[in-house]
Design a protein around this nucleic acid. Structure first.
Lengths: 338, 338
DNA sequence: CGAAATTAATCAAACGTTTGCGTTGTTTTT
DNA sequence: AAAAACAACGCAAACGTTTGATTAATTTCG
């Protein structure tokens, strides 16, 4: 049963022709006659010939592989995004390899190194929470490996990226709450190190000032995104002199913790919660957020993948233009069902 | 900036020694003197030498890559499982490539073919809903590519697999409901083609007969797992002459649809629901299932990956023993919080 | 009919690394 | 002092495929 895979050489030997002719025959090269071509193809089929990919890749110096580095695959947002990436890659016959940074900077650096060693043709990255330095990506430049960031992107423009405009989405969210009549709106924001926290804060402030309201910094609480941190933030709001009547949660997990806590305290009906949608079934909650910011993970993955494949296809690296793609996020209002 | 990566040849040329010595030096081969070795390593480092993986893989005829084929990455169960697989693979310096069948048999066949072409060292598979034939995996045998199935496994023993014992878990679930006093228990089962449906049915029957109750086949309803199908199943129960007071749902999605529907009808308090846990936040629901069968996706992925890596490491293929690993699933009782 | 163009195939190098075997010198053993 | 052992390295083949250059045979055309 140990059948060694058939090779081109083998076919050539049997047919008494040269390996190069076999190779050309299989690729419909014009310089191979129709009869020989057919003989080659038939024998190849009957011997179950399969091209040795490793050899081809080695020969061509390409891997037809794109790497994906992301924080945590089991988060719904990322698994959806990578699902899209895989779908797009498959269309162009690329293979996807991926690895998780588990939100650890050191690990991310190692993985970038590993991907480079694997000689991926390109890299898609969603950076870890801890990542503030970006040297590890610069190395890839000299190896001509294009990088496209998605969703969790570095805070500067001279890279390719696809991301959601959380700022404008936050504006929409706060506007929605203001229109519902809320006058004191709290925000549970993420750590200050996160770019996404800036965006949310910016959006919040824009909406507030645009509506000629006074911005109260104490209504934005930074939080480490754990359950404990969320509860502490919630307590700040409950004891606030201008107790908010609506809260913008950093993400669905925070919203979940918040709603759970408020239900325990039996004050859930005093608040409207708006969140950012990562989790698919959050709308099934009884006291689900009144609205959610949809970040279109599938679309983001799709766009990022296609940009990367474009970059790989056209090695005109001297073109200094950077793809800075913004996926407009939408505010999805949940129907009230009480 | 177009720096071509440094090669062993390059280093050899500069140092005026042979490539083989460089290779051996870098691998601490004893037949290379300490001084030369150090010279080699220093130059390699200063030239940023990175081994060309494609060349190594080609040369060794191994890819250090394992393939994973699963139905749908965005399902929490699978993204958790593959996350575990990646973690285990990384420990042994293997790379993971994956692809989604999207629960389509034809697609699965193609993907197996593609994985074989990629010459993966081994394959982990969770089969699609549609898969009834298994010829496409047999081909891998002759290429000496080991396959380990996980979770969604074929219905026979002469393959390697890791799976949950849904049968015993279902016994536990039904027993739990019986102990709670329920005497008429409905089950929303999956399509009859699915092995998992058999297991659930078996478990149900075992628990019922063991408790010396009469088994009523009309209390098990097969369902296509859509929302519509779930509602139809629910209606059968509502109109049943022995209207059940508890229901075992095929999975969390079904449970979700069911609970939603029951809430609409305002009969949610007439039922206890038990489900199989795929979704992480289902316990946050107000009327969440009273208990869930935990299937340990991370553990399953971990075990499957390790078995596969074992099989790859020991090519004594004449050993006819098959790994048939059962991960005992547990019934997790949710605290009542009403 | 001979030169040019076309067709069909071959040759050989190349991609980067590994590895069995051979070849030097030098040191140790008896 | 000859034989054996060893240390340190080079040679060359091999892995499977692709591709530019070349050759040989055939056809076309002026």
């Amino acid at each position: 049963m140990q059948s060694k895979p058939t090779t081109i050489k083998e076919i050539a030997r049997i047919l008494n022709i040269s390996p190069s002719s076999v190779s050309r025959g299989l690729h419909d090269h014009p310089s191979i006659g129709a009869v020989t071509r057919e003989k080659i193809k038939q024998l190849a089929k009957s011997l179950n010939y399969e091209p040795n990919n490793a050899a081809i890749l080695f020969q061509k110096g390409k891997t037809y592989t794109i790497g994906v580095i992301l924080p945590e695959l089991s988060e719904h947002f990322f698994s959806t995004a990578i699902s899209a990436i895989e779908d797009e890659a498959l269309k162009k016959n690329y293979t996807v390899i991926f690895a998780q940074s588990h939100d650890d900077y050191e690990q991310e650096v190692k993985l970038v190194e590993k991907m480079k060693n694997q000689r991926v043709d390109g890299l898609l990255v969603s950076i870890s929470k801890d990542t503030c330095k970006f040297d590890h990506f610069e190395k890839l430049n000299s190896f001509n490996i294009p990088v496209v960031f998605f969703d969790r992107i570095p805070p500067f423009k001279n890279v390719h990226y696809v991301a959601c405009s959380l700022e404008s989405a936050t504006v929409k969210a706060v506007n929605y709450l203001l229109k519902k009549g809320h006058r004191s709106i709290g925000m549970i924001n993420g750590p200050t190190t996160l770019y996404a926290s800036d965006e949310r804060k910016e959006g919040y402030m824009q909406a507030i000032t645009f509506n000629r309201l006074k911005f109260d910094p104490s209504l934005i609480v930074n939080c480490d995104l754990t359950e404990k941190g969320t509860i502490e933030a919630a307590n700040q709001f409950l004891n606030h002199k201008r107790k908010p009547t609506a809260i913008v949660a950093f993400n669905d997990y925070v919203a979940l913790f918040l709603i759970k806590y408020f239900k325990q305290l039996n004050v859930i009906n005093d608040f409207d919660v708006v969140s950012y949608a990562n989790l698919p079934i959050i709308s099934y909650l009884d006291h689900s957020p009144v609205a959610s910011v949809e970040q279109y993970p599938y679309l983001q993955g799709q766009k990022a993948a296609n940009i990367l494949l474009d970059l790989i296809a056209s090695p005109n690296s001297e073109n200094q233009a950077f793809y800075n793609t913004i996926v407009e996020s939408d505010l999805v209002v949940n129907e009230v069902k009480e």
